[in-house]
């Protein structure tokens, strides 16, 4: 039973739940965007967590980790490389969200989604 392992998994799941709760309950459009990025952080943390191996070190083969022992000494480098893609897509989505949110709130004079009637029917 590795406490650190389960703590990270719990934190990641908690961030995702908190982010979804924010998306579903907040009324200010910018806060909804913020909640999306919180859920995004949880997903990224979960991805990195999936590559964790107990008692191992970072996948950098400097003097502390001889190249010959790499297979038994480092954590999985693949999820760490993949999470970079996830982070970059998250930033791109957040940037577009902020632009549309700021423009919508400036045009309608409010950031409250209950008063944005254009997309409702």
């Amino acid at each position: 039973m590795n406490v650190f392992y389960w703590t990270v998994a719990g934190t990641a799941s908690g961030l995702i739940i908190v982010g979804l709760w924010g998306v579903l309950t907040r009324k200010n459009i910018l806060r909804i965007g913020l909640a999306f990025t919180i859920a995004d952080t949880g997903v990224n943390l979960l991805l990195v967590w999936s590559g964790y191996l107990p008692g191992r070190t970072t996948p950098i083969l400097n003097g502390d980790v001889p190249a010959a022992e790499a297979v038994s000494a480092v954590v999985d480098p693949l999820p760490q490389a993949l999470v970079l893609t996830s982070i970059v897509i998250g930033v791109a989505v957040a940037a577009l969200f902020v632009v549309v949110a700021v423009l919508a709130s400036r045009r309608l004079g409010t950031a409250d989604i209950r008063r944005m009637k254009e997309l409702k029917w």
Binding site: P59, A67, A70, V71, V74, L78, P79
Partner: peptide
Amino acid sequence: AGLEYARRGLEDTGSINLV
């Protein structure tokens, strides 16, 4: 894939940072 990268990464690319 992670196993292959850890085994051959340094030899293939010369980068000590496998990520």
